[in-house]
Design a protein around this nucleic acid. Sequence first.
DNA 1: TTGTATGCGTTATCAG
DNA 2: CTGATAACGCATACAA
Lengths: 339, 339
Amino acid sequence: MKAKITLKDIARELEVSISTVSKALKNSEEISRDTKEKVQAFAKLYNYKPNNIAISLKNKRTKNIGVVIPDIVHHFFTTVIRGIEKYANARGYNVIVCLSEESFDKEVINMEMLANGSIDGFIMSLSSETQQKGDFNHLKEVTEQGIPVVLFDRITNEIDCDKVIIDDELGAYMATKKFIEQGKKNIALITTDDYLSVSKARTMGYIRALEESDLGVDESKVLKLPSMEMDEKSIKKFMDSQELDAVLCVNEIFAVYSMRLAQQKGLKIPEDISFIGFTDGLLSKYANPSLTVVSQHGERMGEVSAKMLIDQVESEEEEETYQTKILEPTLVIRDSIFH
Amino acid sequence: MKAKITLKDIARELEVSISTVSKALKNSEEISRDTKEKVQAFAKLYNYKPNNIAISLKNKRTKNIGVVIPDIVHHFFTTVIRGIEKYANARGYNVIVCLSEESFDKEVINMEMLANGSIDGFIMSLSSETQQKGDFNHLKEVTEQGIPVVLFDRITNEIDCDKVIIDDELGAYMATKKFIEQGKKNIALITTDDYLSVSKARTMGYIRALEESDLGVDESKVLKLPSMEMDEKSIKKFMDSQELDAVLCVNEIFAVYSMRLAQQKGLKIPEDISFIGFTDGLLSKYANPSLTVVSQHGERMGEVSAKMLIDQVESEEEEETYQTKILEPTLVIRDSIFH
DNA sequence: TTGTATGCGTTATCAG
DNA sequence: CTGATAACGCATACAA
């Protein structure tokens, strides 16, 4: 086992000082060609690589960014991570992933752990529990320490920081409008309670589209589940109690599941009943029929978040003005509605 | 903005030495009750937290583990990460995730980046390109430096380190046997080229089951795709050219897609043709009909890998004997085969 | 052209 | 009981 070699080791071997070695490796003008060559050759031979930790301590820059998300077994978050990772890597940053598992306490613990020097900034999406509690002190503390934060998707207005979201209201509006244009009359919405920022926005878009039309909103056609967790019974009960010809769902799982319920009742998709979901994951693509969705462009969101964060980390002055980037959702048309 | 406070700051404020502060905060016996209380109160008030980076430098332990995987937008890897994260977090470790995107070069770069002090050990699954090339020098270098490595799922025998896999051969064997028991005669396999360690093992299990039966192996019933990427045309061509009554697929996407092809031909599942896939993801659960799969227990795999790695990191002596843990796969029976 | 001294934040050893 | 000093690995201002 050949342990890592340090500047000190090289200096000792070559009988020069550490600073000479340091400068030589940086190709400094101050050092003679001779010594530089000697040092560089030696360093190469022994595969010298500077120690990241030491550099971090010196520079007060870790080149790590902390990503705190509620759930990783979820296509949307997964694509966001990929976007973050790609962009961050390209700029020389590593990504530390922490999962809050939708728990407030875990979110707090994770942030505290990372905030003590492990990372240069945070990219995060709030846990449902955090949004429900409305307690954002852990975020406040971090931003007050001068650690940049970028919130994405599940955000809060209580914290002053950069934010990236898609226009959820518009996405739901577009989807609902599509139904209306295709002549659907009984359009349901399966969503979650309003404390989730995204659900709230989507519900608003649904309502706006209906109110703009002649149809109007029928409260009984809106199912609000307590969480994003699958609740087969409630959905079945809801679907059985209604005469529907279109259903908008706040995620793809709800949509695919309710599609199946409809099929079991002998309904034809999209003739008798159409479906649109949110999240453009594998499930939508390979469902039968394939599911039309409002794509949230997770990867793009990740890239944008990472860019905003790193720009802020690397800008000297502390930003005084934070921006919120709103990405446009896109309707990906598949077989669960008329083409 | 209140910046982070350091030992030095406390020492200056309280007019004591840094070492006194350090000891006082550790509740050292050496320090008088008076000073301890004073220091601790002050530290609490200003929310002092030791700087992780400084501690890492001192201890030569980062409490970070590096996870390098080929792809994160993939249910199996996602569950593994969750397992790793849960276990590692419980033991006070953070997880740095790097994606190789199935590329050898990216894998190498990522490892080098992390190996320079950023992490205490690696958990990784090889990129397909790496398995194809058979070049494992980046792994050798890391292990030779004394950095512990745990390989999972996509492994190689060329590297001496701990490994965690599921018994892929057995999984395929069980699945194929199931088909045979249910009276299926024309059992196909849709897999990828043998350079992927898991595909090779699965193919072997498929062959063993057939050879043990009266059926024997028919090469024309095996489709080997160049990669795990979806290749709709090849699968369609394969499915059209065959009279099949059962199909085993090396992942759930291939399975769900070929199910749909069968349905489009008017075949009934599972009566006319049955399907089993690998990977117990959302797709399998919500496909129509739901897909029977060989579950790889990703989360468990992640936990086991993390435990092995951290145990090794924290054990003083350098291990001389490495182990390979083989997890048992499980058949999750759903509607794509007879119950 | 090279080397010395200092500091990043912490801990440990040893002296007072 | 307290504090000065060195060390982790590196970078750099300043001397020589």
